[in-house]
Design a protein around this nucleic acid. Structure first.
Lengths: 186, 186
DNA sequence: CGCAACTATTCATTGAATGAATAGTGGCTG
DNA sequence: CAGCCACTATTCATTCAATGAATAGTTGCG
């Protein structure tokens, strides 16, 4: 069924996206990624080359030119038609909101309710809330700072709404836990 | 600095948490995980045994009893004092809200703004919003369904607030993109 | 008896992620 | 001009995460 050989990860598709503007080599891609995708975790070099290798293997990019001019030898990569098609299809495909939730925060609270008492969970929730509020303040400052381009603002927005979501969840969870005095275990 | 040998992942700590109630073997742990942590992605068996192996290697659990009674041979594992300490410290440690944002949704929109025009991004955002609204409806239904225990409700809450956060972000991003007619590229 | 379903674990493989190592070039400084 | 540092560019070794299939024994049942 999958005409797509691989290139499953988000990282792979982001690299394809960066290559859409023209051929680049690994080092440039790392730089481009880190500055064009604000708030994304910086890409490790090893990751870049490993991913490029898989993309090449799958025919989504090709090596083009082993330039040597001034500096170490480097290999540039370019999108193939298949790579471009893969990128377009990824961009058009809707992300079905994940059926599963994967969050350390949620896992921790769930485990706390299993192994500890509601009191401990409450203490934790309150402390966690404080940390979130603090972080939210920082982020808001970042956003209102001058010199932010569209991408940066959008990324900051994203971080903010989710931080806010965590906060609201912490609050209602706190209330829920408060209501069930003690008898938490099934 | 890290007295903690390894056991970095959330999964490892969740297993420690499940073992807090007493010794279990791999198969039981997988079952327990899947039913006690609602909305979490089901754990693959391979993952369970691999993680148990690392936990044992790091002295956080010990093998206790190679029971054979009725059924295939199985090895139960129990928390060591070090494992219990590790669990407690994990539970008490506040999750500092990640400095980075890792979300396919955000990455896709960022890439779309880089490689495509604002129009395409808008089309995508609208379609994505529709999918989210749909999913939100489903989840809300799940929560109000009868027979939900505290853990299930908390997990559903979590999913809902974040879905809602995505929706609000989609909306403001849509507006931002609409305001910048075309000239998006830096 | 034979077969399906369940319990329990292992294995092989791939991808993700990190950190350190390697290597060449240019420029600056003492 | 020798030595050194900073920068460009890639590779390597290693570990963890994740999936899917394989293996193997047991129980129950028709």
């Amino acid at each position: 069924m999958s005409a797509t050989p691989a290139a499953g990860s988000t990282t792979a598709h982001v690299l394809l996206g960066l290559l859409a503007a023209g051929p680049r080599h690994g080092y440039e891609l790392k730089r481009a990624h880190d500055e064009r995708l604000p708030r994304a975790k910086p890409l490790a070099y090893g990751q870049v080359y490993a991913t490029l290798g898989r993309l090449q293997r799958d025919g989504l990019v090709t090596a083009v030119g082993q330039d040597q001019a001034g500096g170490p030898e480097r290999t540039s990569y370019a999108l193939t038609p298949a790579g471009r098609a893969q990128l377009d299809s990824w961009l058009e495909r809707i992300e079905t909101p994940a059926p599963y939730v994967t969050s350390t925060l949620l896992a921790k609270v769930a485990v706390a309710l299993l192994v500890a008492d509601a009191d401990k969970a409450r203490t934790y929730l309150v402390a966690q809330r404080r940390a979130h509020v603090e972080r939210l303040r920082e982020l808001t400052a970042v956003k209102t700072a001058p010199g932010a381009d569209l991408g940066a603002v959008i990324a900051a927005d994203f971080a903010i709404v989710h931080l806010d979501a965590d906060l609201r969840w912490l609050q209602t969870t706190l209330e829920r836990v408060a209501n069930t005095h003690g008898e938490v275990r099934s």
